[in-house]
Design a protein around this nucleic acid. Structure first.
Length: 427
RNA sequence: GGCGGGUUACCCAAGCGGCCAAAGGGAUCUGACUGUAAAUCAGCUGGCUCUGCCUUCGGGGGUUCGAAUCCCUCACCCGCCA
């Protein structure tokens, strides 16, 4: 995948391209930053905290920004938050529950592998991976307070969005989380010292943490460094899709299958699809503008959504998985008669879906639970009663219904609602 | 450390001895319309061996025929004072 990615050569600079793609929501002084990027290779970093065993879509934006910078000749540093993950970035709503050091360490390892897949570790602009535990763990509490804490003004720290929100809420905030911004600021300082890093990227909700490092480096080293805050990935309603909103789309294929991942993008609203193409694909401006026209002229054809789904799935899961997800989608949503599909096509399509073993006499309600389409028998019955369950595209008539005849003697396709599918396979 | 307030389902939030599996709103999910879209309208949303039973209102213990509701205790959060 990496070898096929490229920036659009029609842009005068990477800065122009990032701007066009809508990836710069906030930044430090634009002229200075653009000039720095023009002047030669810049070392840029982005941090990923282990709050779960996988990265999700919010992180993908950052990974691709680093990759775009790398393609323009700059050097990316992928940071995993071995120490910051032990502390927890304050959320605006409530205090986090601390995870055990063992858990954090295991998640760090998983995240590191995921980040590594998006960057090139060879050549002039080779990427590097770092872990902030390496420089934070040896630091004593006294060193921390004297050497770093002295540069921070509490008044400034209190003004950071997340901190201010928490202070104004009933939840309050612990000293632990309050200190987070100092740790992240110190990361930037260390990376500046160790690797000459002068640019940090992050989501715009991280702006307070980004400026924390910028201010620290100015005070300690007298140097002006930069930051880019990318827009948060939302749908056209402004809803954030990240794990905190409960609709997580994970990069780990074990948690979100390539098929489910493909389907997520395919279901993008017209109003969102162009901005998503810009942020999440390496398609050129000309290609994206063509897809934008297609969306306006033939919205029902959903050409942009199809291309988006294929491109992003390929970027994350590889060409083969992306094509399999596309082929399965075409077969299963092809417009009707599943029985008309030949066995090989059906079998490979169903292989993309969550599945369970079952026989014709098994009750549908139980199979729904077994495939994960519902989480309890009660929910299954409710779904059936609402007319929201289908077997092989036939609506299931009553709650006691059994599976019935299998396609090719082996398969059945369970559907919940319009588009959530699962497979039943004879043992 | 003292005093006061608080901890309810995915989130916000009402309830303050029985009519409470717990109002209302948000969100999810389903149906209709569609393009596997959006908007709109309607409905569902603890579990089960389902005319009943079980678990749930921060944890534990108690009072009572009966507790989310009263008492004790522990934990955590907020505010004021120190």
């Amino acid at each position: 995948m990496l070898s096929r990615q490229r920036n659009d050569p029609t842009f005068a600079s990477i800065w122009d391209e990032l701007q066009w793609r809508g990836l710069v929501h906030v930044s430090t002084d634009q002229d200075a930053l653009a000039a720095a990027l023009r002047a030669g290779p810049v070392t840029a970093y982005c941090g990923f905290d282990p709050t779960a065993p996988s990265l999700h879509l919010g992180h993908l934006t950052q990974l691709l920004v680093l990759r775009r910078l790398q393609l323009a000749g700059h050097r990316p540093l992928g940071l995993v938050g071995g120490s910051t993950g032990l502390i927890g970035d304050p959320r605006p709503t409530a205090e986090r529950t601390l995870n055990s050091p063992e858990t954090v360490a295991s998640w760090v390892a998983l995240l590191r592998e995921q980040v590594e897949r998006f960057l090139d570790f060879e050549g002039e602009a080779a990427a590097r991976m770092v872990n902030n535990l390496d420089w934070t763990a040896p630091l004593s509490a006294i060193d921390f307070l004297r050497d770093i804490g002295k540069h921070y003004r509490v008044g400034t720290m209190l003004k950071k969005d997340a901190v201010a929100a928490r202070l104004n809420s009933e939840a309050g905030i612990s000293y632990t989380e309050f200190s987070y911004q100092i740790l992240q600021g110190y990361d930037f300082l260390e990376l500046y010292r160790q690797h000459g890093c002068t640019l940090q990227t992050g989501g715009s909700d991280q702006w307070g943490n980004l400026t924390s490092g910028i201010d620290l480096i100015r005070r300690v080293e007298g140097v002006a460094v930069h930051a880019i805050g990318t827009p948060l990935v939302t749908d056209s309603e402004g809803r954030k899709f990240s794990k905190s909103e409960g609709t997580a789309v994970w990069l780990d294929p074990g948690q979100t299958s390539p098929y489910a991942f493909y389907q997520f993008w395919l279901n993008s609203a017209d109003a969102d699809v162009v901005s998503r193409l810009k942020v999440f694909t390496f398609l050129s401006r000309a290609e994206i503008e063509e897809l934008e026209r297609a969306t306006v002229e033939r919205p029902g054809a959903r050409e942009a959504q199809r291309r988006l789904a294929l491109e992003v799935t390929a970027t994350v899961h590889g060409d083969e998985a992306a094509e399999a997800a596309r082929d399965a989608s075409v077969a299963l949503f092809g417009g009707g008669d599943l029985a008309a599909l030949d066995e090989a096509t059906l079998g490979s399509a169903l292989a993309e879906l969550p599945s369970t073993e079952g026989a014709p006499e098994d009750p549908v309600a139980g199979l729904l639970v077994a495939t994960g389409l519902t989480s309890s028998l009660g929910e299954s019955r409710r779904a059936i009663a609402q007319g929201g369950v289908y077997v092989n595209n036939e609506r299931v008539p009553d709650q006691e219904a059994r599976l019935g005849p299998l396609l090719h003697g082996r398969y059945a396709v369970l559907r919940r609602g319009k588009r959530t599918l699962a497979a039943v396979v004879a043992p």
